[in-house]
């Protein structure tokens, strides 16, 4: 059991409910599922939990073609066939063609590891169900070599989802759950502060003001999130943009400078500019 509690790090701000969920998962050695908009720190969380608790981290990034089996191991039958045709001696030991997956690597870790299963919703609908057994019992069987692989230490499993697909109930029941609500201004100030300590207060204030305004624009394909805000602030600082330039009261300058860093999608930029334009017209009447 772990006695260390996760309370965030000096590069990651954790809210109280997030800490509670993480600590429950760490203590009970059950997976934790993290949901939230893209860019709200889901992936980063796993990295921070590993570093805060001093654990090795294993990352498994899921794509739409990822199969549950690949997390366990791959049997490279094709290579074996080839070797047999070429008369290679390796061919007689099937173990030569078993390639460990990320789950196996985590199971083999000497220290209790953190295992990140990133963006689980990218995979097929059945994917989470296919991992139930393995994550419950923390063991699996390798049919080719008749070997039972058991976790040396139950990993702390952090699973993230962008909510593209619903996850099966049986899977959900086994996890702790946390939804990262989009940070309010207060939390966001703290987040910016850990990334850019010593940022001018006025600049921070105006930047956040402008940022939340952009987020409120209806119909955006992709609302800018924490990561875009951080990129934008970096640019503002690099370009030495003064806080006054961000103030929206002056309607001629209502489009914040470098807004391309916030809106990455051309249509969104267009929509935004149109709205500002309309706004300006009505204000000037």
């Amino acid at each position: 059991m772990n006695d260390k509690k996760f309370t965030g790090t000096n590069s990651y701000i954790a809210t109280d409910d997030l800490m509670m969920a993480v600590n429950a998962a760490v203590t009970l050695e059950r997976p934790i599922l993290i949901k939230g908009e893209p860019g709200t720190g889901k992936t980063q969380l796993a990295i921070e939990v590993a570093s805060a608790l001093g654990r090795p981290l294993h990352e498994w990034h899921i794509k739409s073609t990822t199969k549950a089996q690949q997390g366990l191991y791959d049997y490279d039958a094709v290579a074996r066939l080839r070797d047999s045709q070429l008369g290679d001696d390796r061919v007689h030991d099937i173990a030569n063609y078993i390639v460990k997956g990320k789950i196996w690597e985590a199971f083999a870790s000497d220290d209790q590891p953190v295992l990140l299963i990133d963006e689980i919703d990218k995979a097929d609908i059945e994917f989470p169900n296919d991992l139930l057994q393995e994550l419950d019992r923390m063991e699996f069987f390798v049919y080719e070599t008749k070997e039972l692989v058991k976790a040396r230490n139950r990993p702390i499993v952090v699973i993230t989802s962008n909510n593209e697909k619903e996850l099966p109930d049986a899977f959900l029941r086994r996890c702790f759950f946390h939804y990262i609500k989009f940070p309010d201004k207060g939390t966001m100030e703290k987040i910016v502060d850990v990334h850019y300590p010593g940022l001018k207060k006025t600049l921070l204030k105006e930047a956040l003001e402008a940022f939340y305004k952009v987020r409120d624009v209806p119909g955006l394909k992709k609302k800018p999130s924490t990561s875009e805000l951080l990129d934008w602030i970096k640019l503002l600082v690099a370009e030495d943009i003064p806080a006054e330039a961000l103030r929206a009261e002056d309607s001629r300058k209502a489009i914040p400078p470098l807004h391309g860093a916030l809106l990455k999608n051309e249509q969104d930029v267009h929509l935004f500019e149109q709205l500002v334009f309309l706004d300006r017209r009505t204000n000037n009447r």
Binding site: D16, N23, A24, T27, L28, R173, F177, Y179
Partner: peptide, 28 residues
């Protein structure tokens, strides 16, 4: 229950709220 027994939550209602939500609700 297991998490409560393990002392994950302190004695405040807030703690219990966060913990019970993380255990019992899997859909925001």
């Amino acid at each position: 229950l297991e998490a409560m027994k393990a002392g994950v939550a302190g004695h405040s209602v807030d703690d219990f709220y966060f913990l019970s939500r993380a255990c019992l609700v899997k859909d925001e």
